[in-house]
Amino acid sequence: MPELLRKLLFWTFIAFLIFFMAFRPDGAAAMFKGIGAGLMAIFQGLGDFMTRLMT
């Protein structure tokens, strides 16, 4: 991917996040809460797998 396109996509994503948090804070909070819950589930599953692997 060309460097200019990657920078453009990155800054567009950052601008969207700022806009989303400024004008839809409830939706943004729910989205980040969902992302956090998903990450916690992934790491919990990984921890369970490693625990069972070692026993």
Results as ranks from 00 to 15, higher is better:
Met1Lys: 03
Met1Val: 06
Glu3Cys: 08
Glu3Asn: 06
Glu3Asp: 10
Leu4His: 02
Leu5Pro: 00
Arg6Glu: 12
Arg6Pro: 01
Lys7Trp: 10
Leu8Trp: 03
Leu8Gln: 15
Leu9Ala: 14
Leu9Val: 02
Phe10Met: 08
Trp11Phe: 14
Trp11His: 14
Phe13Pro: 00
Phe13Gly: 08
Ile14Leu: 11
Ile14Gln: 10
Ala15Gly: 02
Ala15Ile: 08
Phe16Asp: 04
Phe16Arg: 01
Phe16Lys: 02
Leu17Asp: 12
Leu17Tyr: 03
Leu17Val: 13
Phe19Asp: 07
Phe19His: 09
Phe19Thr: 13
Phe20Gly: 00
Met21Ala: 12
Met21Thr: 09
Met21Asp: 03
Ala22Asn: 11
Phe23Asp: 01
Arg24Ala: 07
Arg24Tyr: 05
Arg24His: 05
Pro25His: 00
Asp26Phe: 13
Gly27Gln: 10
Ala28His: 01
Ala28Ile: 08
Ala28Cys: 07
Ala28Asn: 01
Ala29Phe: 13
Ala29Met: 10
Ala29Gln: 09
Ala30Asn: 14
Ala30Lys: 15
Phe32Val: 14
Gly34Lys: 07
Gly34Leu: 03
Gly34Phe: 00
Gly34Val: 03
Ile35Gly: 03
Ile35Met: 12
Ile35Val: 15
Gly36Met: 09
Gly36Ala: 14
Gly36Gln: 06
Gly36Pro: 00
Gly36Arg: 14
Ala37Gln: 13
Ala37Asp: 12
Ala37Ile: 07
Gly38Glu: 04
Gly38Val: 01
Leu39Tyr: 11
Met40Arg: 13
Ala41Thr: 12
Ala41Lys: 13
Ile42Glu: 01
Ile42Trp: 02
Phe43Ala: 02
Phe43Asp: 01
Gln44Trp: 06
Gln44Ile: 03
Gly45Asn: 11
Leu46Ile: 11
Leu46Arg: 02
Gly47His: 06
Gly47Cys: 05
Gly47Ile: 12
Asp48Leu: 13
Asp48Val: 15
Asp48Gly: 06
Met50Ala: 07
Met50Trp: 09
Thr51Ser: 14
Thr51Tyr: 13
Arg52Val: 01
Leu53Ser: 08
Met54His: 06
Met54Ala: 14
Thr55Lys: 09
